[in-house]
């Protein structure tokens, strides 16, 4: 009983922790993170998603189109298409196709937020601010109730990782590894509000 009480207290304290409370405003250019924006031509990734214990694997194609949109198409290894999303351009985000089983607002919104975070869709002139914290500088861009955080070292020469959060809680964390300019070799996305991770590894074609 005492253990149960203690566990509940720990959980409650954890849930109430403000992830961004210790950040302090500092001078700096929030747009310095734009240089880390990934540049895709037509890259194919082996993708693994784990949603509440269920594993889904496949191929994720990210392609920049001539009309300045970026298309993200996820299909099974056997060719079966799961979804096709369009980002940017004149119309902004658009679901081109999604299979019936996945066509749920919570799924579409989560995926949209993940790719918006990776593509730095929210990084725009005049909309950001910089705060100092651990482990470095937090370059923040807000939209509605959510904020995208791009965390760099103290001189903004290296992007450590990105986060999407509310004003208090971290919701998503994203890491990417680049060895060839701004084309990510691998990416990892972890959700904190529900059990959902995505791992992407670039394939050589």
């Amino acid at each position: 009983m005492r253990f149960l009480l203690l566990s509940s207290l720990v959980l409650l304290t954890g849930a109430c922790t403000n992830s961004y409370k210790t950040l302090r405003t500092t001078a700096g250019d929030p747009l310095c993170v734009a240089k880390f924006r990934p540049v895709f031509q037509s890259q194919l990734y082996k993708a693994q998603a784990v949603v509440t214990g269920h594993r889904l694997s496949g191929l994720l194609l990210i392609k920049s189109m001539e009309d300045s949109t970026t298309r993200v198409v996820f299909s099974a290894e056997t060719g079966f298409k799961f979804f096709d999303f369009s980002f940017g351009g004149r119309d902004g985000f658009k679901v081109v196709y999604i299979m019936k089983k996945l066509d749920k607002k919570v799924v579409v919104d989560a995926l949209r937020n993940d790719f918006d975070l990776l593509f730095q869709s929210w990084v725009e002139p005049g909309k950001g601010m910089v705060k100092k914290g651990e482990p470095g500088l937090y370059h923040m861009f807000s939209k509605g109730s959510k904020t995208a955080y791009y965390i760099t070292d103290s001189t903004c020469s290296k992007l450590l990782h990105s986060e999407l959060g509310s004003s208090r809680k971290k919701l998503v964390e994203a890491y990417s590894v680049n060895t060839n300019g701004n084309i990510p070799d691998s990416m990892f996305i972890q959700h904190y509000n529900f059990d959902f991770t995505i791992t992407l590894k670039k394939l050589e074609r």
């Binding site: 194919l44 298309r71 060719g79």
Partner: peptide
């Protein structure tokens, strides 16, 4: 040889 043709993207994924 498997060829996935994404017509609107003019893209072919070959495995």
């Amino acid at each position: 040889i498997q060829e996935k043709n994404l017509s609107l993207l003019s893209e072919k994924i070959v495995s």
